[in-house]
């Protein structure tokens, strides 16, 4: 079971007086769904980029099963807010690109890509060009592409941030379904507290100025959905509202202005 440890990460951007992130430590185990929340500018994206290996921290390290990471790798695939798909490839080819990088033979790629598109409920959309897809569909192609890399950890930076409310709800349950099936460790950033509560097994709260982790809360609403409870009934549970108030308080407390 892969274990990702974030150890004492500090990040100073060049020319910036205050650190974007100071001494942040947390972890993600496979089978967990960790969600980062916090006000704008508190360093969520910074932390995610460090974990992805795209940004070298000024201090600290990220370890997977004890090994310090040195850069980006397919075991930590990243999903972006704005899909970041390749418009010169169709949906299937976008997914197949990740398979190609993984060394899957050319003849197997098409079929595997179609299966992954099926997993994100896009059966039959393989031949569509990217610009012919809606925002939600694109995001699902992006998800399928990330899954094609067979990552041990799936990193997502506000993956549903650009979607309308209805599409967003459907995507949340899709994410839970896929997460439950694939057993990846998920690490996601979101601005939506309800979304965090619904998806997370653990919520990590960050505060700005300087960016830091101020709290971690174990939650279990996502698991309840996976075990068969409906979203409606989960959200109707008074415990859900209590948890939301609790997290809102934390985010508010962290305010130093």
């Amino acid at each position: 079971m892969p274990h990702l440890a974030v150890e004492d990460i500090s990040v100073y951007y060049p020319g910036q007086q205050r650190p974007a992130l100071t001494r942040a430590s947390t972890y993600v185990k496979s089978g967990e769904f960790v969600v980062l929340v916090g006000r704008s500018g508190c360093g969520k994206t910074t932390l995610l980029n460090v974990v992805a290996g795209l940004l070298k921290p000024t201090d600290g390290r990220v370890r997977i099963d004890g090994e310090t990471i040195t850069g980006p790798s397919a075991d930590r695939a990243l999903v972006f807010q704005n899909d970041a798909l390749f418009p010169w490839l169709n949906a299937r080819e976008n997914v197949a690109f990740a398979l190609k990088l993984r060394g899957v033979s050319r003849k197997d790629r098409g079929e595997m890509a179609d299966r992954l598109l099926g997993l994100v409920k896009l059966d039959g959309f393989g031949d569509k060009q990217i610009w012919q897809l809606s925002g939600g569909m694109r995001q699902r192609v992006g998800l399928a592409r990330a899954l094609a890399a067979q990552p041990a950890f799936l990193l997502m930076d506000e993956p549903l941030g650009a979607l309308d409310a209805l599409t967003r709800e459907r995507m949340q349950t899709l994410l839970l379904d896929i997460w439950a099936q694939s057993k990846v460790g998920a690490l996601m950033v979101t601005h939506g507290i309800d979304e965090a509560l619904l998806l997370a097994t653990r919520i990590v709260v960050l505060a700005p100025g300087p960016g830091r982790i101020i709290r971690e809360i174990e939650t279990g609403f996502g698991r309840r959905y996976v075990e068969g409870e409906t979203v409606r009934s989960i959200k109707a549970d008074p415990a859900f509202a209590l948890a939301r108030a609790d997290i809102e308080d934390s985010i508010f407390e962290g305010e130093t202005v």
């Binding site: 992805a52 790798s73 397919a74 990740a98 992006g142 592409r145």
Partner: peptide, 8 residues
């Protein structure tokens, strides 16, 4: 960055 994290 997407391509990098896919292992390119």
């Amino acid at each position: 960055n997407a391509a990098k994290t896919l292992g390119a």
